[in-house]
Computed example of a mutant assay.
Amino acid sequence: MSESATETRYTADVVAVDPEGRVLLIERRWEPYTGHWALPGGHVDPGESSRDAAARELEEETGVHVAAADLVPVGTWDAPGRDPRGPYSTDVYLARVPAGTLAVAADDAANVRWVELGRALRDGLAFDHAEILRAVEPEL
């Protein structure tokens, strides 16, 4: 097995929540999980903090701008098998956004939607994002 096949990749995800308690989801444009709903997020670039990456990915995928300093750390998810591409570790952040925040799909997102938390969990999510939402739920 090559060294790159076992190297852990680093990502950042965002749980964006409006005052009604709805969460922002993206429909994945690419594999894995093409067409499935997920939290906005993506790879941390070299020289970038996970907090900066989270803010950047949120804006790139949804058009929603949140200052990196306003993101609240939630935790790190790194269980083996959480991503079918190999070992991934993600730092998750909570973003509280104003009512009426408009989101528009772009970049890796084929579509976006604001959805009630319970519905998001019932409908199913890519990766371990349902586990992440269940962990964040008490804070919402």
Rank of each mutant, 00 (worst) to 15 (best):
E61M: 14
T34F: 09
A54E: 02
P32Q: 06
H43K: 05
A109T: 10
A105D: 06
G41C: 03
H36T: 11
P73W: 01
A67R: 15
A120G: 07
E27A: 11
D108R: 13
S50M: 05
R29G: 11
D107G: 07
A120L: 10
A99E: 15
A109W: 05
E59Q: 12
T90S: 10
A95V: 05
Y33T: 05
A79K: 00
R28F: 13
E61D: 15
R122K: 12
A110V: 11
A95G: 11
E131V: 13
A99I: 13
L71R: 04
W37I: 00
R56G: 04
E57K: 03
G75A: 09
A79P: 00
R56F: 06
Y93F: 14
A69H: 07
V112N: 10
E61N: 13
G81C: 02
L117G: 06
G86A: 01
R28N: 15
W30Q: 15
A79Y: 00
Y33C: 05
W114P: 11
D52K: 05
W77V: 06
R85I: 03
A105G: 06
T90D: 03
A79D: 05
H36W: 15
L39N: 06
R96D: 03
V64G: 06
D128V: 11
V97A: 00
D78A: 14
V66L: 08
V72K: 03
D123C: 12
H43N: 08
R28T: 13
P84F: 03
V64N: 10
L71P: 01
W37G: 01
G41M: 02
A54L: 04
A110S: 15
D107H: 15
L58D: 05
A130M: 11
A99P: 08
V64Q: 05
T62Y: 10
A130E: 15
R28Q: 15
E59N: 10
A105C: 04
G100R: 12
G35L: 13
D83T: 01
G118I: 04
L117H: 08
V64Y: 06
P80K: 00
T90N: 08
D45A: 15
G86M: 00
V72H: 09
H65P: 00
P98H: 11
T76M: 06
F127T: 04
D52R: 10
T34A: 15
D123G: 14
E57N: 09
W114T: 09
H129W: 09
L39C: 08
R51G: 02
P40K: 00
R51I: 02
S49V: 03
